[in-house]
């Protein structure tokens, strides 16, 4: 019984927040071209700290070395691709459930042998996605609690957070620690 990760998407289908707890599969930070500030706190790859002289002929090869080592050490999907895959899966399953029901029926969760994904949609188009252990009951109430609690207090009522910005996420220290506290107080978190 445990909680793995939390994704929040806005109505533009962009991931605006990410946090993980007991996740063991590796994840890579996104490439710099796709980096959006204020979404996640995945440590960035080791960069070249000492600036070498431009007259050093070995400079280029050293750079390549660092890149190769960096690529070998960092496994897993880059964050931007992973968040898009998660969104794609919930979108297609949502459409499928809707199509098969013939009416506006909400898709709530899916399960694999390793994890269970819970989805909670707000009326404003925010989608809260939680990955947990497969044996737990529905955790949509937790997502609703996060929405009505920390999300409203530290994101919606926070004048420093730009909602709907499309440039950056909603991450801030208060929100992150409040979500963390909320999750750690759950009985299924261990």
């Amino acid at each position: 019984m445990t909680i793995y990760s939390l994704y929040i998407y806005d109505r533009h289908c962009d991931c605006v927040y990410y946090q993980d707890w007991h996740r063991t599969s590796p994840i890579r930070p996104p490439p710099f071209t796709n980096f959006r500030p204020g979404v996640h706190r995945i440590p960035s790859p080791p960069s070249i700290t000492t600036k070498e002289s431009i007259f050093n002929t070995k400079r280029l090869s050293a750079l390549e070395d660092v890149e190769r080592v960096g690529n070998r050490e960092l496994k897993g999907l880059p964050f931007d691709e992973e968040s898009k895959l998660v969104y794609g899966v919930i979108l297609s399953l949502r459409n499928m459930v809707k199509k098969l029901s013939g009416r506006d029926e909400a898709f709530t969760s899916y399960r694999t042998a390793q994890y269970k994904l819970h989805l909670y949609e707000t009326l404003t188009g925010y989608r809260f996605v939680l990955l947990s252990d497969p044996n737990v009951d529905s955790l949509r109430f937790v997502l609703k609690q996060i929405y009505t609690g920390p999300f409203l207090d530290y994101v919606v009522r926070n004048p420093l957070v730009i909602m709907d910005s499309r440039e950056e996420g909603i991450d801030n220290d208060l929100f992150r620690s409040a979500v963390d506290r909320h999750m750690r107080n759950l009985s299924m978190f261990s």
């Binding site: 793995y4 063991t24 895959l85 998660v86 898709f107 709530t108 899916y110 694999t112 042998a113 994890y115």
Partner: peptide, 23 residues
Amino acid sequence: AITSRLNPITGKGGLESFEGENW
């Protein structure tokens, strides 16, 4: 196929069940 790639822990296995509100 995609769900088995989104695994947060090690191991294999794709989608086993999904749920809406009524079915």
